[in-house]
Design a protein around this nucleic acid. Sequence first.
DNA 1: CTGCAATGTACCGTGCTACTGAACAGTATG
DNA 2: CATACTGTTCAGTAGCACGGTACATTGCAG
Lengths: 207, 207
Amino acid sequence: MVEQDWGFVGERVRAARESAGMTVRELARRIGVSPSHVSQVERGIGAFSVPALYAVARELDVSMHALLDPPGQETAATLVSRPANDLVAAGIVQRAGDHPSIVLGSGPRWSRLTAGGEENAEFLEVVYAPRTPRPAEEIRHGGREYGIVISGELTVEVEGATEILGPGDSIVFDSTRPHRFWNDADSEVRAIWFVRDTLPGESVPHA
Amino acid sequence: MVEQDWGFVGERVRAARESAGMTVRELARRIGVSPSHVSQVERGIGAFSVPALYAVARELDVSMHALLDPPGQETAATLVSRPANDLVAAGIVQRAGDHPSIVLGSGPRWSRLTAGGEENAEFLEVVYAPRTPRPAEEIRHGGREYGIVISGELTVEVEGATEILGPGDSIVFDSTRPHRFWNDADSEVRAIWFVRDTLPGESVPHA
DNA sequence: CTGCAATGTACCGTGCTACTGAACAGTATG
DNA sequence: CATACTGTTCAGTAGCACGGTACATTGCAG
């Protein structure tokens, strides 16, 4: 069996607990273990059992994935320079560093993932910095959008209903419904978004 | 701490193992435990440690989530700190663990990210296990596809041209071009894929 | 039929670790 | 000073994750 260091689990538990404004004893009481055990786990000199971890995830409202997923393999940042070739030249493949991005002040950063202009569609990577404020206005436009959160936690509001999306959570809805997104958490949010424009035959004015 | 029956974990391990055509001894050897222990876990009279479960997930090419996520029947009582999930009930938001996934033996695992059946589109998360072989056949079908690699390295071949996509790299092309994907690297590949069907007015035969 | 090699399983241990309980130090009240 | 929090330390224990071995079955070769 591959040996592995599980200390990062404790670090994440501590981060989640503190961000929830919860004390060691309070968390311990809620998950049914002793405060000392929680302290030991958070300091990396102990570990939670699977049931205990589940209770932690439930009480702190984080996913098992967020607690257990091994760190490492940095995402878009790892740019190994590779030679351009046919597919890149043809505009089919686009390298991570080459995405034209649009930074909107302190707001989210949108990166277009398609080389040329696509007809009827936008394929985007979106990054929200920590604690972006809730937009004052809802938006609505034609088409339909599909999103999945890669990392962080994105707060979404669609027709007044609010939900927090964690890594792996996805969302699909008609863009004509009033919606807005923001980042209430202390960590950056990365998500992949696909926005399909109104199909021919339908007609909804763009916002 | 809330007591819970973890027998379903064993059932899923057994299902995954058998679907991979692997014997108890073989799995035990790969994850570094004894065959009897595997047997006991699968029969619900034992349990894997977190590291052992991780090894199982790796060898059987399933996610921890797929093994650990509690089965259906909610749990209205245990939803303490989660916000109202109208959006989940409405089929707009889908939780990470709820994506119906299709495991194809040692091949890639596709997870549909949309709750219901979408018209004219598929929104997918795809996971390739390390070193999946290059498919013998190219495929071509109608529509247009958009993909971005989240982690790992995916080898793509479009009309004979080959390219390796790393994290953040994206690809867009007409699905009518012959193409195939595989994983030549030693690490798992995760990618988000959007496949838009042929628009009305175009007509390309499906493969 | 008799081996023989697979399969999964039952039983009996044991060493490790998840976890406890009590004490401890630090800080902020009053 | 006392009191009430905070997180931490440490010795100890109970339980379970796990190993080793033996066993019942099935299928195949001869």
